[in-house]
Each structure stands twice: as C-alpha cells, then as structure tokens.
Amino acid sequence: MLLNLYGIRAIYEFEMARTRRTLMQSIVAPVISTALYFIVFGSAIGSRISQMEGITYGAFIVPGLIMLSLLTQSISNASFGIYFPKFTGTIYEILSAPLSPLEITLSYVGAAASKSIILGLIILATSAFFVPLRIDHPAWMLLYLLLTSVTFSMMGFIIGIWADGFEKLQAIPLLIVTPLTFLGGSFYSISVLPPFWQKVALLNPVVYLISGFRWSFYSIEDVSLWLSLGMTVSFLMVSVLAVIWIFKTGYRLKK
C-alpha cells in the first residue's frame, strides 16, 4: 500500500461530517458575524469614511474580513479536529492505524482547509449582497484562499497537538492570531500608518497574507505581490517542518 487512501478518506469524511453536525458553529456563525461587520463598518460607519486606495471602504474591507474568518476558522477547525480525539481518547485508533504522518496530516489539514475555503467563498458571496465587489485576479484569489487555508490549518493542527487543555486551544487564536489580523490591515491599508508603525507592521506575518489577497481583488498592495507570496509559502514550509518534527518525535501524541 503506497498511500492509505481509504484511511485518508475516512478521516476527511469524518471531519466533514462533524462540520455538517455543527453547521451553526462552523458556517452560520462566522457568516453572521461577517455580515455584521459589513453592516457596521461597511454600511453604517463605512458610508462616512472616504475611499481607501480608491476603493469604497465597504468593498476595501472584504478581503480583510474573509482573511479574518479564514485564519481563525482554519486554526479552529484543525486544532479542534486533532485535539478532540486526544481529549476523548479515540486518538488510539488513529495512532494504531496503518497511516503515515503525511496521511494523518493530509486528512485533518485537508478537511480543515476545505471547510475554510467553503466558508471563505460563502462570505465572499455574502459580501456581494452588501458592497459592490470586483475580483481582478480570480486565479490568484483562489490561490491565496488555498494557501492561507492550508497554512493556517497546518498551524491549527500543530496547536491542537500542542494543547493539553481547552484553554490552550483557544489561547493562540484569541491572543495572537486575532490581534495580528486586526493589526495586519484587515480594516485599513498600512500606508495610512505613520512611517515608524508601517515598519513595525511589516513584522506582522498577516500583513503579507492580506496584502496579497487584497491585490487579487483590487490590484492594490501594501507589500509586493511576490514578497507576499514568498512569505505565505514560507509560513507553510515552517508549519510543514514543525509537523514533520512532531511525528518524528511523537511529541504530545505518543508517550
């Protein structure tokens, strides 16, 4: 058996079925909260804000809002997906199955990324009801959607393995990822910041993700497209290396 495809499918379908069972939490809740952002920032307050980089404010925040959901949901889906079997003890079956680390990662990360991409597309469709939308580079948009979902699902997978309690599971998304996303240009272009803070903002990895993603919509960028893409791929590689190390050492999975 070169690749345990049935095993990958079993985990993938199990995870997707979990999403269907928790539709309210997985899909409906993020869509409603994003719709609220559009109503508040796009229509209510946004109508009083002048254009940002030549784009109406409501339309400007669409990529950032999708990214915000993508990042938090990718981490949440993947971390919960692997943490829950650890919590309930059913991880024994995954560890004792003839599955390679690559296959286990593909299954969990694949399912989490799929859910995030679906969610991202739903939010995109929802936003079309509130603001005039245009996508200049749809292929790039889909590439960023895919890369970001996979990268942050991978990070979520690592967090799920690392966490030994529900508090830790929530800590990184709430204390690190959400602030970085808000400060990474979800609601503004970093060019509006004072020069010093622009330089500080470049230390925030989320800036590169949002910049590249926004470029795919409106052809405007905070950092160059290739730098943005390079940074995104770099995050993915770091996550891949961390996962390889986890399975090699059995960290938090095997005693």
Partner: peptide, 8 residues
C-alpha cells in the same frame, strides 16, 4: 465503517 477505512 470509519475503523475499516482507517486500516486501508
């Protein structure tokens, strides 16, 4: 069925 799939 899930268990059977896991084992390939």
């Amino acid at each position: 069925s899930f268990s059977r799939g896991l084992f390939g």
